[in-house]
């Protein structure tokens, strides 16, 4: 056990401050210290993406980042993306197009997709398949995940046009 560090985070718009061992992995900080259980653990080796969160504007797998490395960061998890009163178009599209089954990969999948669409609002199917390749799903075969992301992109672009 090593000395504890003073850590500050902003998670889903809320300031958090605590002492933690530097070896604490960010996924456990979120899930066990802050009770944010949307991001899941599937591998702890950065392969599956179930733990995907957004840190300072980038998609990050929280299972292989120490909380010490995240000190001062702004973090968004699935809980910060949309809730019952303000669903994100991706959340709606995944339900409408059957883009999930057991739901275990879904928070990471949607969190990653929000970044993908921010970076590329008009992705081709190939762009989506490549851009989502860091998130594994064992249930859906990805076909409906791809469709869900395409549908959400169309919905978001239409809303943007209507607003302009």
């Amino acid at each position: 056990m090593s000395k504890k560090m003073h850590i500050k985070l902003n998670v889903n718009g809320k300031a958090e401050e605590f002492l933690a061992e530097p070896r604490e992995l960010l996924i456990y900080t979120l899930r066990e210290r802050l009770n944010i259980t949307g991001p899941h653990i599937g591998c702890e080796t950065s392969h599956c993406g179930a733990c995907t969160v957004t840190i300072n504007g980038k998609s990050v797998k929280a299972c292989t980042m120490f909380v010490a490395q995240a000190d001062g960061a702004e973090i968004t998890t699935i809980e910060g993306i949309g809730g019952p009163d303000d669903l994100h178009p991706l959340q709606t599209a995944f339900k409408e197009l059957h883009g999930l089954q057991c739901g275990y990969c879904t928070p990471g999948m949607i969190t990653r997709a929000t970044k993908l669409l921010e970076e590329n609002p008009n992705p081709t199917e190939e762009d989506i398949r490549f851009g989502m390749a860091g998130n594994l799903c064992r249930c859906t075969g990805y076909q409906n995940i791809v469709k869900s992301i395409q549908a959400a992109a169309a919905e978001m672009n239409a809303a943007k046009e209507a607003a302009e």
Binding site: I41, P84, Q91, H98, P107
Partner: peptide
């Protein structure tokens, strides 16, 4: 029929054993 399970899963509100 659209799935009734999906609301909680898409919002990160599933309840798995490690939760």
């Amino acid at each position: 029929r659209k799935r009734v399970e999906d609301a909680r899963f898409t919002q990160g509100k599933g309840n798995y054993v490690d939760d």
